Simulated scan of single mutants.
Amino acid sequence: MPTPARRRPTVKDVAKQAGVAPMTVSYAFNQPARVAAATRSRVLEAAAQLGYRPDSTARALRSGRANQLGVVVGEHLSYLFDNPQAAQFLAGITDVCVGEGLGVVLIPTRGDASDVDRVLAAAVDGYVLWTTVADDPVLAAVARSGRPAAIQGGPAHPGLVCIGPDDRAGAAAVAAATPLAEATPVIISFPLDRRRAGGVLRGRDLPPDLMDPQAVPFPVTAARLAGYRDALTAAGHDWSDVRIAVVERNQRELGERAAAALLETLDGGGHVVVLAMSDELALGARAAVGRTRREVTLTGWDGSREAAAAGVWSVAAPLRDQGRACARAALAGGLEGHRVPWSVVAPEGRPVRGYSG
Rank of each mutant, 00 (worst) to 15 (best):
M1Q: 04
R6C: 00
R8H: 14
P9T: 11
T10P: 03
K12L: 04
Q17I: 02
Q17K: 15
P22N: 10
A28I: 05
A28H: 03
P32I: 10
A36I: 01
A38R: 15
R40T: 08
R40S: 06
R42I: 06
L44F: 12
E45Q: 15
Q49D: 11
P54C: 12
T57A: 15
A58K: 06
R59E: 14
A60E: 10
A60N: 12
S63K: 06
R65Y: 02
A66N: 15
N67P: 00
Q68C: 13
Q68S: 15
L69D: 05
G70C: 10
V71F: 04
V72Y: 05
G74K: 10
H76W: 01
S78E: 13
Y79C: 01
I93L: 07
V98M: 03
G99V: 08
G101M: 11
L106M: 14
D117V: 03
R118W: 03
R118D: 13
A121M: 06
A122W: 08
D125N: 11
D125H: 10
G126W: 09
V128W: 02
P137G: 05
P137Q: 09
P137E: 08
S145G: 08
A150R: 08
G153L: 00
P155G: 06
A156R: 15
C162Y: 00
A169S: 14
A173W: 05
A175F: 01
A175W: 02
P179T: 05
I187L: 09
S189I: 05
P191C: 14
D193A: 11
A197P: 00
G198H: 07
G198D: 10
G199H: 00
G199F: 00
L201G: 02
G203E: 13
G203W: 10
G203L: 11
L206D: 13
P207V: 12
M211Q: 14
D212W: 03
D212R: 06
Q214A: 15
Q214E: 15
A215P: 07
V216H: 03
A223P: 00
R224N: 01
D230R: 13
D230Y: 02
A235F: 07
D238L: 02
R243Q: 15
A245K: 11
N250I: 12
L254T: 07
E264V: 09
D267F: 00
G268W: 08
G269C: 04
V273N: 11
V273D: 05
V274T: 10
V274F: 03
A276S: 14
A282N: 03
A282T: 07
A285L: 08
A285H: 07
R286D: 13
A288P: 03
R294T: 13
E295Y: 00
V296F: 05
L298G: 07
S304E: 11
S304P: 01
S304A: 02
A308N: 01
A309M: 13
G311I: 11
W313I: 02
L319G: 05
R324S: 04
A325K: 02
C326F: 01
A327C: 10
L331H: 08
G333V: 13
G337E: 04
H338S: 14
V340Q: 15
S343K: 14
P351K: 07
V352M: 05
V352T: 13
Y355I: 02
G357H: 14
G357V: 12
